[in-house]
């Protein structure tokens, strides 16, 4: 356990990756890029769980990562189906094109 990476550094990396993903969601308007940024954010959260689990040598962090992985798979399949629907309806990938509701 002597050569272990400090937990703070791992959490710091997770925070940087999460912030980059958040910036991607907020800055980009292409919906495919926004989905990719959401993936980056989910991955950063999973990294934080694994870092915390490795700090105490427990399995719970890895179990939570597996649940996040499952959730990301379900999210991306529905999200990409929505991307295809958006493209077929509006002939563009701009998220702002779908900003109006039709009740």
């Amino acid at each position: 356990m002597i050569a272990q990476v400090p937990m703070g550094h791992g959490l710091f990396l997770a925070a940087i990756l999460f912030t980059l993903g958040l910036a991607g969601v907020l800055v980009r308007r292409n919906i495919v890029f926004m989905l990719m940024s959401v993936e980056v954010m989910l991955n950063a959260v999973g990294l934080a769980f694994v870092v915390a689990g490795a700090r105490w040598g427990q399995v719970d962090g890895q179990v939570m990562f597996i649940f996040i992985l499952t959730m990301a798979a379900a999210e991306v399949s529905v999200g990409l189906a929505l991307v295809l629907q958006l493209y077929h309806s509006f002939k563009t990938l701009d998220a702002d094109a779908a900003s109006t509701m039709r009740g």
Binding site: L13, G24, V27, S37, V40
Partner: peptide, 8 residues
């Protein structure tokens, strides 16, 4: 971090 910055 570098690769993620390139992604966005």
């Amino acid at each position: 971090v570098l690769a993620t910055a390139m992604v966005i």
